[in-house]
Amino acid sequence: MQGVVKVNSALNMRSGPGSNYGVIGTLRNNDKVEIIKEVDGWYEIRFNGKVGSASKSYITIVN
């Protein structure tokens, strides 16, 4: 499943599904990500070869 980031500035990509996990990357508006699965309001995603988590509130699913 594919998604597109929708933010005003930037979205942190984290090492796990929650804001208490470390930041491993930064996503910008309109970045395209691969959604692997949903976990507690977060998506596990793949972006630029990295796997991490980002809040699903800022990612829109595209077909």
Rank of each mutant, 00 (worst) to 15 (best):
F47W: 10
P17V: 03
V33F: 05
V39Y: 11
I61Y: 05
R28T: 08
T26C: 13
S9L: 11
G49R: 04
K6E: 07
N20Q: 14
R46K: 12
G41Q: 07
L27G: 01
V33G: 02
N30Y: 08
R14S: 07
G18I: 00
R14T: 09
K6D: 05
N29T: 08
N30Q: 08
E38Y: 06
N8W: 12
L11A: 11
L11H: 06
N63R: 11
R28M: 12
G25D: 12
N48P: 02
G18P: 01
G3E: 02
R46P: 00
G3Q: 01
G52F: 03
S9R: 12
G49C: 07
I36E: 02
R14M: 14
I45P: 00
S53V: 12
S19G: 10
Y43Q: 00
I24K: 02
I45R: 00
Q2L: 14
Y43W: 05
R14P: 06
G16C: 08
S53D: 03
G22C: 14
V23R: 03
S9A: 11
N30F: 08
I35P: 00
Y43N: 00
G18W: 01
N29E: 07
V5E: 02
S9H: 14
N30C: 12
S53Q: 06
V62S: 09
V4P: 01
S9F: 14
G41R: 05
R46Q: 08
N8S: 13
S55Y: 14
V4A: 04
K32E: 10
K56V: 10
G52M: 03
T60Q: 14
S19T: 14
I24V: 11
N20L: 09
G22R: 13
V62G: 07
G52K: 00
V51S: 08
S55P: 15
V4E: 05
I36F: 08
V39T: 11
V51M: 09
V62R: 05
G16E: 03
D31I: 05
S19K: 14
D31T: 08
N30W: 07
V5S: 01
G49N: 09
I59C: 04
T26D: 04
K50I: 14
V7N: 07
S53P: 02
V5L: 03
W42A: 01
I36L: 14
K50G: 06
V33E: 01
S55T: 08
K37L: 07
E44C: 15
W42Q: 01
A54M: 06
V23I: 13
R46F: 11
V62L: 13
L27K: 00
A10S: 13
D40L: 08
R28F: 12
N8G: 12
K56Q: 06
E44N: 10
E38R: 03
N30A: 08
V7S: 13
N8D: 14
G22Q: 14
V33C: 04
G22K: 14
K6P: 01
P17L: 03
V51N: 07
G3I: 05
G18T: 01
I36M: 10
S19F: 15
V33K: 00
G41Y: 05
Y58Q: 08
G49F: 05
N20G: 11
K6F: 08
D40F: 09
G16L: 02
I36C: 07
D40P: 06
S53E: 03
S57P: 07
K56C: 08
V23M: 04
N48R: 11
D31E: 07
V62F: 09
A10I: 15
P17E: 04
A10Y: 15
K56M: 11
V5W: 00
V5H: 01
R46S: 10
G16Y: 02
T26N: 06
K32V: 15
D31Y: 05
I59V: 07
K50A: 10
S53Y: 15
D31K: 03
S19V: 14
I61P: 09
V39Q: 10
R28Y: 13
F47Q: 03
D31P: 02
N20A: 11
K37M: 09
V51K: 08
I36N: 02
K56R: 07
E44W: 14
I24Y: 00
K37T: 10
V7K: 10
N63K: 11
I36Q: 04
A54T: 07
G25E: 11
Q2H: 13
V51W: 07
R46T: 08
G16H: 04
Y58C: 14
W42L: 01
A54P: 03
E34M: 10
I61Q: 06
M1V: 12
G25T: 10
T26M: 11
Y21E: 04
S9P: 06
V39H: 10
S55F: 13
V62N: 08
I45L: 08
G49S: 06
I61C: 08
K50H: 09
I35F: 02
G41C: 08
S9G: 15
G49D: 09
V4M: 09
G16W: 03
N29V: 06
K37C: 14
V62D: 09
V23E: 04
N20K: 12
V7A: 11
T26E: 09
V33M: 04
N30G: 15
I59M: 02
D40E: 10
W42S: 01
G41S: 06
V7P: 02
Y43P: 00
K50R: 11
L27A: 02
V23T: 07
V23W: 05
Q2C: 15
V7I: 10
D31M: 05
G3N: 01
G3H: 02
N30D: 10
D31R: 01
V7H: 10
E44F: 11
I45N: 00
E38A: 06
M13D: 04
G41N: 08
K6T: 11
V51Q: 09
I59D: 01
S9V: 13
V23C: 08
I59L: 03
P17C: 10
G52Q: 02
K56H: 04
K37I: 08
R46C: 12
G52C: 06
D31C: 08
I59N: 00
N12A: 15
F47C: 04
E44V: 15
I36A: 02
R14A: 06
E34K: 06
I61G: 03
Y21D: 04
N48E: 12
G25Q: 09
G25S: 08
R14W: 11
N48C: 10
S57R: 14
S55I: 14
Y58M: 07
N30I: 03
G16I: 01
I36G: 02
G22I: 12
K32S: 09
E38Q: 07
G52N: 03
N30L: 09
V51H: 08
Y58P: 02
E34T: 11
Q2A: 10
I61N: 03
K56I: 09
E34L: 11
G52I: 03
I36R: 04
A10M: 13
I35L: 03
Q2T: 13
D31W: 05
S9D: 13
V33R: 00
R14V: 08
N20V: 09
